[in-house]
Amino acid sequence: MKARLNVLGRKHNIIGVIVQDETTGESKHFYDSVAFENVSVEQKVVLGECIESQSFEKKIEDLKQLLEDSKDHLKVLGEQIIREVVGCGGLPFGESILPNLAKEYKEHSDYIDGVSCSLDVLKSDNYA
Score class of each variant (00 low, 15 high):
M1D: 05
M1K: 14
M1F: 10
M1L: 10
K2D: 07
R10K: 14
R10S: 04
R10I: 00
K11S: 03
H12G: 01
H12P: 02
N13P: 06
N13D: 10
N13I: 08
I14S: 02
I15P: 01
G16K: 11
V17A: 02
V17I: 15
I18Q: 10
I18L: 10
I18T: 15
I18M: 10
Q20G: 01
Q20A: 04
Q20D: 03
Q20P: 02
E26C: 07
K28H: 13
K28I: 13
K28M: 09
Y31G: 00
D32I: 04
S33R: 12
V34Y: 13
E37P: 01
E37A: 09
V39G: 00
G48D: 04
G48C: 09
E49M: 07
C50F: 10
E52M: 12
S53W: 06
Q54L: 11
K59H: 14
I60H: 00
D62F: 11
L63G: 03
L63R: 02
K64G: 02
Q65C: 01
L67T: 04
D69R: 15
D69Q: 14
S70F: 04
S70C: 05
S70H: 08
L74E: 07
L74Y: 11
L74T: 07
V76K: 12
L77Y: 00
R83D: 08
E84K: 14
V85W: 01
V85A: 06
G87D: 03
C88I: 06
C88V: 06
G90E: 05
E95K: 13
E95N: 11
P99I: 06
P99H: 09
N100E: 09
L101C: 03
A102W: 14
A102Q: 15
E104V: 01
E104C: 01
Y105S: 00
Y105W: 12
Y105K: 06
K106Q: 07
K106S: 04
H108E: 02
S109D: 09
D110W: 15
D110A: 14
Y111V: 02
D113F: 13
V115G: 07
C117Y: 14
L119G: 07
L119F: 14
D120Y: 12
D120L: 13
L122W: 01
L122S: 00
K123Q: 12
S124N: 05
D125S: 08
D125A: 09
N126R: 15
N126A: 13
N126S: 11
